[in-house]
Nucleic acid binder design. Structure first.
Lengths: 180, 180
DNA sequence: AGCAAAAAACCGACCAGTTGGTACAGTAAA
DNA sequence: TTTACTGTACCAACTGGTCGGTTTTTTGCT
């Protein structure tokens, strides 16, 4: 696994994500991904010996990206909760299109592939509950923010872009005001 | 469309829901549904001329069921919000297994099929916001409750059953205390 | 009520296209 | 020589959907 290989590896994952975003979760086929990545099918299989491995890698990639962005926000926010909410407010608009369908693809294919996401969510939840005296209100804010993400995920948002944006800001605001 | 036909019709939908629940969203195939419903493939197609029509009917069924259960709760609750939260607390445990994967199947197949769900959500949201002076807190509670549902939907819940149950009760409690 | 014709409900073999995955000969670079 | 592929041909399984035919139910008429 040298640099070239790593590069191809991430090219394939990116291609898979964009296929999911552009053609829908149901259209993430090996052929489509190979074509989008500019790789032969044989090459794809060389890197990811099965579709399951590919989707698993996609999920992993999403988690790492989210974690990275959050740790950036944590430098300027007073609490983990505020950092998470602030990150999500940005995160959503930037790459939700990609991530949404990818996660959906994983879920439909094999729900077990989402287990890393669950673990990640659990960690965040526990850290935030430990951080705040008023655990209930903190949990509430976190859950509300998650609901907004799920709305994007399934294209189910009942809000206009403006409402949505205002709501996100209000969530962050409330998180900042919450006693730590 | 006589009684027999209507019966078969609903048998097929129920079968489709249970296939989705038991084998996962990705396994909702016409053959599987037909077999589960005790009908031939031809018979299935007679009732639902395409898979899209079938899934659309599934979604419709879910919405109607949810609406029905909620209107029951509204008799004993002080506000729509409290009724919705209370309904969801029950709803989830009873038929979430079925509904979850069904909605997922629809989403993966063709996101547009979830539009009725979006409309339904929008209606509920607007009614509740209109009902409450403190629209933000009401929205927060509603969103948090939705997040719990989405957790089930994707098997992503970070809570134990007990935590989850307690949380649901706290949501209902807060909704009741909220000024109307 | 009884009965034939028509319509609705249903069957299941079959089809064409797609999918994940294999196999393998060859190639370019490190 | 190993690693990292390309390219293509191929396959078995599965998928949504068709189609001609059969059974069941309803209808119209006596």
């Amino acid at each position: 696994m040298n640099k070239k290989s790593q590069l191809t590896n991430s090219q394939i994952i990116q291609a898979a994500l964009s296929v999911a975003a552009e053609k829908g979760a149901g259209k993430v086929t090996l052929d489509a991904v190979a074509k989008a990545a500019g790789v032969s099918k044989g090459g794809l299989i060389y890197h990811f010996p099965s579709k399951e491995a590919l989707i698993s890698a996609m999920v992993q990639q999403l988690i790492e990206e989210a974690e990275c962005q959050r740790s950036l926000q944590e430098r300027t926010e007073s609490s983990t909760l505020a950092a998470v909410l602030q990150t999500r407010a940005h995160f959503t608009r930037q790459i939700a299109g990609n991530t949404a369908m990818a996660i959906l693809a994983a879920a439909a294919e094999q729900p077990a592939l989402l287990q890393p996401v669950q673990q990640h969510n659990k960690d965040v939840m526990q850290q935030i509950q430990a951080e705040h005296g008023n655990a209930l209100q903190a949990t509430l804010l976190l859950l509300a923010s998650e609901a907004l993400i799920y709305h994007d995920l399934l294209n189910l948002s009942p809000f206009t872009a403006a409402e949505r944006s205002a709501l996100e800001q209000q969530l962050v605001q409330q998180a900042r005001e919450l006693q730590v």
